[in-house]
Write a protein that binds this DNA or RNA. Structure first.
Lengths: 147, 147
DNA sequence: ACTATATAGTGCGATATCGTATTAAATTGG
DNA sequence: CCAATTTAATACGATATCGCACTATATAGT
């Protein structure tokens, strides 16, 4: 890598950090008090990607420390949005299932967030964002593998 | 926005969140114990963008709540990496200056982080990353303006 | 000039984050 | 098989994050 392109890679992660703040703030402005972006993300993952994941699988999916996942799942369970059942295949572990209430909440959250995303979509059309997501995903997969 | 492209925009912010975790973890693995990625980011900003910023300007630059900035600046000041002087133009405010020790630390941090970034650069060449950064920056500026 | 309003920074308290250590269960290897 | 090692989840404690409220100063409106 030529030295003069090093700053570009710092800028990349700087932009990612700022956008993370901006998007978390945007999400949490639309979610009820006390519900965090990470709570929504877990519910969304259970519904869209796969229900019945273990806490460790969720930690890996979001690159979150597993103790943070325990904390988040505690919230979701207390609100009745998930159920945690012991995993018969591995009795050290558990499986996380979204409840009907969790699904309803998640659908409502999607609806609440849609206007903000639609506003973004007006100025950042899907094909442009798709290219962006593709690049980000490739980088994420690479960094995940090297972590 | 057609309904079927909505998930793309959720994925965008999901990828950003995961990459933020991954990059923060990567940075902090190379920084001394107790030094966070945000500490490095502030020092870097003072050196690369502009020295003598006010705390509020820094908060805006990183989209960080100003109380968080106060906290971060406290750390940097206790380590002797910045100095905060009162601002003669506006006596409510202060200006943050990086010290020679701060510069030295920042340069060392850059050196410590370079191998990781160079590894990324091997598989993600500068032109590809430049395109990514361009898209991210445009989105960041847009969201910043609408916040 | 004078009052009302807005803004910069920070103390404080509530909560989130996350590293370390612990427990229980699974796996490995001899 | 059994002992040694690894792994899943979590309790616990230290620290970071961040909203609210407060103080000091600046700005605006009359």
């Amino acid at each position: 890598m030529p030295d003069r392109s090093l700053p570009l890679y710092f800028r990349l992660f700087n932009e990612i950090g700022i956008l993370e703040q901006l998007s978390r703030t945007m999400f949490e402005a639309r979610l009820p008090d006390g519900v965090l972006a990470s709570h929504f993300a877990v519910l969304n993952h259970l519904m869209r990607v796969a229900d019945g994941r273990t806490p460790l699988e969720l930690a890996r999916a979001f690159q979150m420390p597993k103790t943070t996942v325990t904390h988040v799942l505690g919230h979701l369970e207390r609100r009745g949005w998930i159920e945690m059942r012991s995993n018969p295949e591995d009795r050290r572990s558990k499986r996380v299932w979204i409840t009907p209430e969790g699904r309803a909440f998640r659908d409502g959250a999607i609806a609440a967030l849609t206007p903000d995303l639609a506003a973004i979509a007006e100025d950042f059309p899907a094909d442009r964002v798709a290219a962006l997501v593709e690049g980000l995903e490739a980088l994420r997969i690479w960094m995940d593998a090297r972590r």
